[in-house]
Design a binder for these strands. Structure first.
Length: 482
RNA sequence: GCGGCAAUAGUCUAGUGGUAGGACACGGGCUUCCCAAGCCUGUAACCCGGGUUCAAAUCCCGGUUGCCGCACCA
């Protein structure tokens, strides 16, 4: 731990993954730009995520990022976000108003008097359209969404009909969400504008205990940190049977979250699932497990939350909108009365996951007297799939290399060409941004149309025919996302 | 939000009330049949605003941003 743990962030800045936003005006806390390589990495991560849940048979929708106040009045966010705040007149400590802490009361820190400090609003407010007339002040009140989930809930009826009235079904949405955090910090860990990838699984509450695919995850090992009881490594099946995890649906989706995180390169020994205590649960949740990543720099941090939202949101929207959110259940002999489905919600913070991926992938190793920095991204996420070099800075090699580059680009799209500096320097440049393969053109190429492919992780090379080159590279990439 | 510390090229840094130095990176050239080699050469910086001073990147004040602690994270 004595060594600096911020080198991956330095690399991300220097090589065009991640920059502080609005830097020329001094920067604005809580906002980041993804540079050219970061944007590619993120887009490919999004594609992997879509693919993963599409294979579950879930549908993707895309809702607006701005919603009228009514949506958040129903969802409870307006109340929970617009609490009054107080500040201690003696020690300047800042608190949210609750049963014990009120203006005029005593500061729990120092006993000083608390004074009102106005609204403490975690949602960004805006105005939709132009307010009209004297009564227009409250008209058009809108908010930037603090989660994508509400877009799925308000469309529940449409989605149910789309699925021909049957439960269960899953809906996914990927997009920006906004929270006006009091103190954003720690690079991508706490942002004011961030990308969420959310899954809402609608299920009959009577069927939460029997997920049709549960057998496929039953034996998966998982590291659990429950709200009560000991931290343990166990199987998903045992955790559900013993009641540590409340039902099969929750267990299944916890297992799926783990599967996805491992697939994109987060090592399982740096992942655990921690259950929320009652007092830290969101207002809508009846149970919640966080997938936490062990960061070398920041310690355990939440990267995915898997909540059982019960019928909270659909019931609330039914009440406020007066629209029926109930579903008939059927058996062979009769139709039962209506019930409101429950929702199991895995909610991914993609920016935090980008951080977790980069920190996990970043390694420094001694090669002779030099330190080799390598970003061991899985090939699906690497912003550059292959780089093409002429071994020497000679016209005949450069020409050949450029023609190989042009044709490889047709297949892989994200391909680099580099003829500057020594061959070793060029390999290192690519290692640093995680390029899995480097292709080198030498004099033998001019004779027999073969090239060398050098592997990022082993630094080993083998020779292939140019005709077989793209196939050889694609063999190492499961899904090519462009 | 509060408190402490900090801010110098793309990156990491040295530095003094009076001309801002290095390393790496990057560009150009030479060399080199495979892992940041070597040689020549070039570009490039004192966070923003105000004050003190003959003179401020340096001292003072405010802001912004970053790090750490507290609080917050529905």
């Amino acid at each position: 731990m004595a060594v600096r743990e911020d080198r991956v962030e330095e690399l991300a800045r220097r090589r065009g993954f991640l920059w502080q936003a609005y830097e020329i005006y001094g920067g604005t806390a809580g906002f980041y730009d993804y540079g050219p390589l970061g944007a590619r990495l993120k887009r490919q991560l999004e594609a992997e995520w879509r693919l993963f849940y599409s294979l579950e048979g879930f549908f993707e929708i895309e809702s607006p990022t701005i919603a009228p106040a009514a949506v958040f009045r129903a969802s409870g966010h307006l109340n929970c976000f617009s609490d009054l705040a107080v500040v201690c007149s003696r020690c300047d400590s800042f608190f949210r108003v609750d049963d014990e802490i009120v203006a005029g009361g005593k500061c729990p820190e120092c006993g000083g008097e608390l004074a009102g400090a106005g609204e403490f609003n975690l949602m960004f407010q805006t105005r939709i359209g132009v307010p009209k007339g004297k009564e227009g002040a409250n008209r058009g009140e809108g908010y930037l969404r603090p989660e994508t989930a509400q877009g799925m809930f308000v469309n529940f009826q449409r989605l149910l009909r789309f699925n021909r009235g049957k439960l269960p079904f899953g809906v996914i949405q990927l997009g920006k969400a906004y929270r006006n955090e009091i103190s954003p910090r720690q690079s991508l860990i706490r942002l004011r504008e961030f990308t969420m990838a959310e899954v809402e699984v609608f299920v009959d509450p009577d069927e939460k205990d029997s997920h049709p695919g549960f057998d496929t995850v039953r034996d998966r090992r998982i590291w659990l940190n429950p709200a009560e009881g000991e931290e343990c490594e166990t199987s998903v099946g045992d955790a559900v049977r013993s009641g540590i995890i409340a039902n099969e649906y929750l267990g299944y989706h916890i297992a799926k979250v783990k599967e996805f995180l491992e697939r994109i390169g987060i090592p399982s020994d740096r992942l655990r699932f921690r259950q929320h205590r009652k007092d830290e649960m969101a207002h809508y949740a009846r149970d919640c497990w966080d997938a936490e990543f062990m960061s070398r720099r920041y310690g355990w941090m939440e990267i995915v939350g898997i909540a059982d939202r019960g019928d909270y949101d659909l019931a609330a929207h039914a009440t406020y909108s007066k629209v029926d959110m109930g579903v008939h259940t059927h058996t062979q002999t009769q139709t039962h009365s209506k019930m409101i489905p429950h929702v199991i919600e895995p909610s991914y913070g993609l920016d935090r996951i980008i951080y977790a991926i980069m920190e996990s992938a970043f390694t420094e190793e001694q090669v002779g007297k030099e330190t080799r920095k390598v970003l061991r991204l899985i090939p699906e996420l690497a912003p550059v799939k292959a780089a093409v070099f002429p071994l020497l800075n000679r016209e005949e090699l450069k020409q050949k290399a450029k023609s190989v580059f042009q044709s490889l680009k047709q297949e892989l799209v994200y391909v680099d060409y580099d003829d500057s500096g020594s061959i070793g320097r060029r390999y290192r440049r690519q290692d640093e941004i995680g390029t899995p393969y480097c292709v080198t053109i030498d004099y033998q190429t001019l004779e027999d149309d073969t090239v060398t492919i050098r592997d990022r992780d082993t630094m080993e090379q083998h020779r292939v025919r140019i005709d077989d080159l793209s196939a050889a590279i694609l063999a190492g990439i499961r899904n090519l996302h462009v």
